[in-house]
Amino acid sequence: MHAEPEPNLERINLTNLVTECLAESIADFEEKNLAVHIEETVPVFACADKEMVIRIIQNLIRNCVAHSDGDIEVQIWTTQNAVISFRNHVKNASELDVNWIFERFYTANKAKSRTTGLGLSIVRFLAEQLGGSTSASIEDGFLKIKVELPDANADCNPAAFED
């Protein structure tokens, strides 16, 4: 068993990070004929480990590219936390069990054994490491995955705020 790395908490611009990761994935979206719609918003800041958040965003993008059969909607906003939401239409939405979607090797359709793999379980693990949470819901054939991270106004590493 190995020790988990300590998150390096700093104030990060979540809006910029999501936008950068989406831009890096344009070829993947185009290959699958997927359009991405990101809602323009004021910059949202989180208190988090930048590398861990990049991994979360990349895994959310990979999940959309692998399983979406329509456009992808991305939203970033602030409640008491910083929130990232990915929403996309999925085939056979009725076969998905949102209570299990973050489990390792969860398979929606046992016959085809199309697994969501480790991607979403890593998203949950990293979000929890950072003091955040994950949730998923299905409505009208759309899968929505939300990741909440501590807002930058939370108790963050003071050194990160020094210019």
Rank of each mutant, 00 (worst) to 15 (best):
residue 30 E to N: 14
residue 12 I to T: 05
residue 38 I to Q: 15
residue 50 K to T: 06
residue 23 A to V: 03
residue 55 R to W: 00
residue 52 M to P: 06
residue 59 N to F: 04
residue 11 R to I: 13
residue 19 T to Q: 13
residue 18 V to F: 06
residue 11 R to A: 14
residue 39 E to A: 15
residue 44 V to K: 10
residue 34 L to G: 07
residue 38 I to G: 06
residue 12 I to H: 02
residue 60 L to S: 06
residue 8 N to F: 06
residue 51 E to G: 12
residue 23 A to W: 00
residue 29 F to Q: 04
residue 69 D to L: 12
residue 37 H to D: 14
residue 42 V to F: 14
residue 55 R to D: 02
residue 64 C to E: 06
residue 25 S to C: 06
residue 52 M to Q: 12
residue 54 I to M: 02
residue 31 E to F: 08
residue 63 N to T: 15
residue 42 V to D: 14
residue 15 T to C: 08
residue 58 Q to F: 00
residue 8 N to G: 07
residue 47 C to W: 08
residue 45 F to Y: 15
residue 25 S to Q: 03
residue 44 V to E: 08
residue 33 N to G: 15
residue 20 E to Q: 04
residue 30 E to G: 04
residue 65 V to K: 01
residue 15 T to S: 14
residue 67 H to E: 07
residue 63 N to Q: 10
residue 12 I to S: 03
residue 31 E to N: 10
residue 63 N to E: 09
residue 60 L to G: 07
residue 34 L to Q: 06
residue 16 N to Q: 11
residue 19 T to P: 04
residue 10 E to S: 11
residue 36 V to D: 01
residue 17 L to E: 08
residue 25 S to Y: 03
residue 61 I to G: 01
residue 9 L to Q: 13
residue 52 M to H: 09
residue 42 V to N: 12
residue 41 T to E: 13
residue 24 E to N: 06
residue 26 I to Q: 06
residue 16 N to H: 09
residue 12 I to M: 05
residue 67 H to N: 10
residue 29 F to P: 01
residue 8 N to L: 08
residue 66 A to S: 15
residue 26 I to L: 04
residue 22 L to F: 07
residue 5 P to V: 12
residue 38 I to E: 10
residue 22 L to Y: 05
residue 51 E to V: 08
residue 4 E to D: 13
residue 25 S to E: 03
residue 50 K to Y: 08
residue 11 R to V: 12
residue 69 D to V: 11
residue 29 F to I: 02
residue 37 H to I: 14
residue 59 N to H: 13
residue 9 L to I: 13
residue 39 E to P: 07
residue 20 E to H: 01
residue 22 L to C: 09
residue 16 N to L: 09
residue 65 V to L: 02
residue 59 N to R: 11
residue 46 A to T: 07
residue 50 K to G: 02
residue 25 S to F: 01
residue 17 L to H: 03
residue 4 E to R: 15
residue 17 L to Q: 06
residue 38 I to S: 11
residue 25 S to K: 04
residue 14 L to S: 13
residue 10 E to T: 10
residue 51 E to W: 05
residue 10 E to A: 15
residue 4 E to Q: 15
residue 24 E to F: 01
residue 58 Q to G: 01
residue 50 K to L: 10
residue 48 A to K: 11
residue 41 T to L: 09
residue 8 N to I: 09
residue 10 E to F: 04
residue 42 V to I: 13
residue 6 E to V: 15
residue 23 A to F: 05
residue 18 V to C: 07
residue 69 D to G: 06
residue 18 V to R: 04
residue 29 F to D: 02
residue 7 P to Q: 12
residue 49 D to Y: 01
residue 10 E to N: 08
residue 11 R to L: 11
residue 25 S to G: 05
residue 68 S to A: 14
residue 64 C to F: 07
residue 33 N to M: 11
residue 68 S to I: 05
residue 59 N to V: 05
residue 28 D to K: 02
residue 7 P to D: 14
residue 9 L to K: 15
residue 55 R to T: 10
residue 67 H to K: 07
residue 11 R to H: 12
residue 69 D to R: 09
residue 17 L to G: 03
residue 33 N to C: 08
residue 21 C to R: 07
residue 57 I to G: 00
residue 43 P to R: 08
residue 64 C to W: 02
residue 55 R to I: 01
residue 57 I to M: 00
residue 37 H to F: 14
residue 45 F to H: 15
residue 14 L to N: 10
residue 59 N to M: 07
residue 40 E to Q: 15
residue 30 E to P: 02
residue 65 V to G: 01
residue 61 I to W: 00
